[in-house]
Design a protein around this nucleic acid. Structure first.
Lengths: 204, 204, 204, 204
DNA sequence: AATGAATGAGCTTTCATTCAT
DNA sequence: AATGAATGAAAGCTCATTCAT
């Protein structure tokens, strides 16, 4: 053990704790996740967790903040693509499928907090989600203004789209369809959404 | 001296327990819901619950079974409507909005179990959901066969639609948009979905 | 276990807990006293304590309240004796020696809280003590008014006397002089105090 | 590379630790005093304390030894004064008031250990106290032999006097009478004690 | 000599479940 | 049939102590 930990050391260990916690919470849920087991998974002592986080709840919040930020960045990047809207939609669907696959634990924790019942715990989730919704709503509004897509109530549409993206990414796991058709499902969703919002002019 | 209870008595008390449990779990989540408080809410003694259910987990399963069945029936009834598909879609959107509003506690418990992380507890949820998906997929398949709607992979489409319905019903609560625009949102969703699946022939 | 506990049942068990706690705390101090051990001493389960007290701290407060009240009553009774002041003083000295002997655990807990460092915990102690001091001060004032004793600042004198009474009752234990000369020490103290306050007229 | 510390360096750092510990323990009590905080107060690293003391308990013992010795010296010096007994008594009362004021932290730790409940920890306290009692008892005995004061059982009287001195010094703090009448209270006590022990010859 | 990161024993408290009445 | 008093496993968290550097 070095006498003084570098910032990189600290962040690496912090991340190890978060990863272990994600795995544990994704499996058992926040309440049943056991600090003891998380420490074991992270290969550190029980007390060490409390050198990096103030409490069990603090670990969860950090987790939710990380995944919330990750999702928000994803949305932002897809919207900033210099490409037709149809491609942006497709990019979003693919990106969510990717996140759900590659960061499965984090994603599950996020979704369960999002749809869970304890509002306090979900705070960072709601924070980022609201940000993502706003981003998307603004983009949709602008697109409608120049006729790239149909006009809906932008906010409602944004919520709907994000809900679909999350649901699609997760439902397969819920139903134990753990096959490898993620990509195909993403295509279907993108196609479906695009039909829902494509400007009428393009549809004849 | 053991009283003899009629079947009706038993079922009424059982239902009282389930209602109380739904309220409690919807508020605090399964793990934090307190058997003691549930008993108080149901106006019975703590031990009495165990005359009707084997364990706390058993109460939750009964709850999830009830709401799963309720949702499944709703889907079935909407699909059996003797009406154009556009109306069936609209009926589904309205019905989910209604359930989310009128049986809020049950609905919340369902959704949090559905998107929650404990696979064992979610079993009855998955069971009914699979049934609903199958019902919907078959209906969509038949509709596509006669040209009432476009052809998609029926199963994927069914999952998508149910995901949207649930999300739409719940997301407003998550984001604290507790306004009274449920019905409008249902309209938007129905419209959106219909655009996504309406046969091309109808769109020009 | 009776289905419904009578008030007497409850109070008896409550007292059993207090007795066990007194023994434990008198031996190890509040912080080291172990709820687990207290429960064992009281021959009940760990959780049962929390049916009678809200927390460990609550147990201590009840303890301190009980002994504080006991000491206060003792002071009051001695002062109300229809006897010369010299006898009242003697009664006080005897009574404190008696308390320290017969309720040794309670008395020790009281003194350690009184002279301990955590003000919050000592609150009920200070409350009763202040009451006892006031009682005594008033009596001394009245006695001085009619010439039964010399005049001092009544409040200072009252504090001094109570301090002496407590010290005398406890110091032997501190010094491990656990002999049987309590009564003699009480006599000496009474004599000493009386000399300190007897009216000059009596002294020639 | 191990530095070589002079003895003076060591003792200075040792004293810094003791001062910090006194402040901490006087405030929170021994059990709640935090080694970490003590180290911070002493401006040294956590581990360094263990280069000077074997354990937390060892720190406390050193503390108690220091204050015990200080009190004992005070008693001895007052008794060695070349002055009438009445003045010696007065000097004692003043000296205790001074200690309680100027070394408040040390004094509080001493008193709480003295009247506390853990015999092991109080060992150095009892040791010094017994020494002080013996000193005082012997002086009283000698004084009685030459008629300077009345004859009592010397040991009992010594315990009584020391108890009074400590009580008087502390009780004001207990009762939150944090005024500036220390000196006056010392006068009252000295007067009172003198009346209790002055030879009858002087009293007519 | 000095440090502070790491540890894990041990603590209080909660709550699902049992069972005498 | 119904109850609620009693239980004890299990949890999160603190902090004195160790030891690599």
């Amino acid at each position: 053990m070095p006498k003084i930990l570098t910032l990189a050391d600290r962040q690496q260990k912090r991340q190890a704790i978060l990863d272990a916690a994600a795995k544990e919470i994704a499996h058992y849920g926040y309440d049943r996740a056991n600090i003891n087991t998380i420490a074991e998974r992270a290969r550190i002592g029980r007390g060490t967790i409390y050198l990096y986080f103030a409490s069990k709840e603090d670990v969860l919040e950090a987790l939710l903040d990380a995944i919330g930020k990750m999702i928000d960045s994803t949305v932002q990047e897809c919207l900033e693509l210099d490409a037709p809207w149809q491609d942006k939609i497709h990019a979003l669907a693919s990106a969510f499928a990717y996140l759900a696959r590659e960061h499965q634990d984090f994603f599950r924790v996020h979704v369960s907090a999002l749809h869970g019942v304890n509002r306090d715990i979900g705070q960072p989730v709601a924070h980022w989600l609201r940000h993502s919704v706003d981003l998307l709503a603004e983009a949709l509004d602008n697109a409608a203004a120049v006729g790239s897509i149909q006009r809906y109530d932008a906010h409602t549409l944004a919520i709907m789209l994000l809900g679909m993206l999350e649901s699609l990414a997760l439902l397969p796991y819920v139903l134990n369809h753990e096959d490898d058709r993620d990509e195909q499902r993403a295509d279907t969703l993108a196609h479906f959404i695009w039909q829902g919002i494509a400007p009428l002019a393009l549809k004849k």
